[in-house]
């Protein structure tokens, strides 16, 4: 006789899809649905949201009847803490600080995500990346970046 377990990974996936389905579905309801002849902006997304919720439910139900369950494993908390803010930081500062400081700090932030990266080497790496990308993108390709932005007292 086999006992059934709950696969928490799949259950979480099912819930996530249902949540997305609801998020999109509720917003679709707020739009004009239209007719089959002239479909409104809400028509197609509403149908898709419904399908997504159904798929999520199916995944959730099956998750409760698994013979074996798998574990999710650990999370890269440090990675998330430094990797994800890196592009955001670049976006927030590239116009204000300018390309050169923005790319330097972005690389530095990303570099801190690894435990293996010693701070002094992170600095060296950030410096190298900055020189390379400034030469290639700013001077070489002439991309319309300001090298040093108005936030700096230059």
């Amino acid at each position: 006789m086999t006992t059934t377990k709950t696969d928490r990974t799949d259950a979480a996936a099912g819930i996530l899809f249902i949540a997305f389905g609801l998020l999109f579905g509720v917003q679709s309801l707020g739009m004009e649905l239209g007719t089959a002849f002239r479909m409104g902006p809400g028509y197609f997304p509403l149908v898709l949201s419904g399908v997504l919720i159904l798929l999520g439910l199916a995944i959730l139900i099956i998750a409760f009847k698994k013979v074996s369950a798998t574990e999710m494993g650990g999370f890269a908390w440090r990675g998330m803490l430094f990797i994800l803010p890196a592009p955001v930081f670049f976006g927030l500062t590239v116009r204000g600080l300018g390309f050169v400081p923005a790319i330097f700090l972005t690389t530095l932030i990303a570099g801190l995500a690894s435990l293996k990266m010693k701070p002094q080497w992170a600095l060296v790496l950030a410096f190298g990346v900055t020189v390379f990308s400034t030469l290639v993108f700013s001077y070489g390709l002439g991309l319309p970046f300001r090298r040093f932005g108005p936030w700096l007292p230059l």
Partner: peptide
């Protein structure tokens, strides 16, 4: 740990 900060910088650009 050297490669991925470079990747992040290039992606951003």
């Amino acid at each position: 740990h050297i490669l991925f900060p470079i990747i992040m910088a290039m992606c951003s650009i």
